[in-house]
Computed example of a mutant assay.
Amino acid sequence: MTSPGPLALAPAMADALARWLEIEAATRDRSAHTITAYRADLLAFLGFLGGHHGEAATPKSLASLRQADMRAFAASERARGLGARSLARRQSAVRSFLRWLSDREGFDLSAALSARSPKYARSLPRPLSPDQAQDALDMVAVGHDTPWVAARDVAVMTLLWGCGLRISEALGLNGCDWPFREALTITGKGGKERHVPMLPVARDAVAEYLRLCPWRLTPDQALFRGVRGGRLGSDAIATALRSARAALGLPPSATPHALRHSFATHLLAAGGDLRTIQELLGHASLSTTQVYTGVDDAHLMAVYRAAHPRR
Score class of each variant (00 low, 15 high):
Pro4Leu: 10
Gly5Asn: 13
Leu7Met: 13
Pro11Arg: 12
Ala12Ile: 00
Ala12Leu: 05
Met13Asp: 01
Arg19Asp: 13
Trp20Gln: 03
Arg28Ile: 07
Arg30Met: 10
Arg39His: 14
Arg39Lys: 13
Ala40Tyr: 13
Leu42Thr: 06
Ala44Asp: 15
Phe45Ile: 13
Leu49Tyr: 01
His52Lys: 12
Glu55Ala: 15
Lys60His: 14
Ser61Tyr: 02
Ser61Gly: 07
Leu62Pro: 02
Ser64Tyr: 11
Arg66Thr: 15
Phe73Ile: 04
Ala75Asp: 14
Gly81Lys: 08
Arg85Gly: 12
Leu87Pro: 03
Ala88Val: 07
Ala88Met: 05
Arg89Asn: 08
Arg90Trp: 04
Gln91Asp: 02
Gln91Trp: 02
Ala93Lys: 01
Trp100Cys: 06
Leu101Val: 09
Asp103Ser: 15
Arg104Ile: 10
Gly106Phe: 03
Asp108Lys: 10
Leu109Tyr: 02
Leu113His: 06
Ala115His: 09
Ser117Gln: 14
Ala121Glu: 15
Ala121Thr: 15
Ala121Val: 15
Arg122Gly: 12
Arg122Met: 14
Leu128Gly: 03
Pro130Arg: 04
Gln132Thr: 09
Leu137Arg: 04
Pro147Cys: 09
Ala150Ile: 07
Ala151Ile: 00
Ala155Cys: 07
Thr158Phe: 02
Leu160Asp: 05
Ile167His: 02
Ser168Leu: 05
Leu173Tyr: 03
Gly175Pro: 02
Trp178Ile: 10
Arg181Ser: 09
Arg181Trp: 05
Glu182Met: 03
Leu184Pro: 07
Thr187Cys: 13
Gly190Gln: 04
Gly191Phe: 06
Val201Trp: 01
Ala202Asp: 00
Ala205Pro: 01
Val206Thr: 04
Val206Tyr: 00
Val206Cys: 00
Val206Ser: 00
Tyr209His: 01
Cys213Trp: 02
Cys213Asn: 08
Pro214Val: 05
Gln221Trp: 10
Leu223Gln: 03
Gly230Glu: 11
Gly230Ser: 13
Gly230Phe: 01
Ser234Tyr: 14
Ala236Thr: 14
Ala240Glu: 02
Ser243Tyr: 12
Ser243Phe: 10
Ala244Ile: 05
Ala246Cys: 09
Ala247His: 12
Ser253Phe: 07
Ser253His: 09
Ser253Met: 05
Ser253Glu: 15
Pro256Val: 03
His257Trp: 03
Ala258Arg: 00
Ala258His: 04
Phe263Glu: 00
Ala264Glu: 04
Thr265Gln: 00
Thr265Gly: 03
Ala269Arg: 11
Gly271Val: 11
Leu274Trp: 06
Glu279Cys: 06
Ala284Trp: 07
Ser285Tyr: 06
Val291Thr: 10
Val295Asn: 01
Ala298Gln: 14
Ala307Pro: 07
His308Asp: 09
Arg311Ala: 15
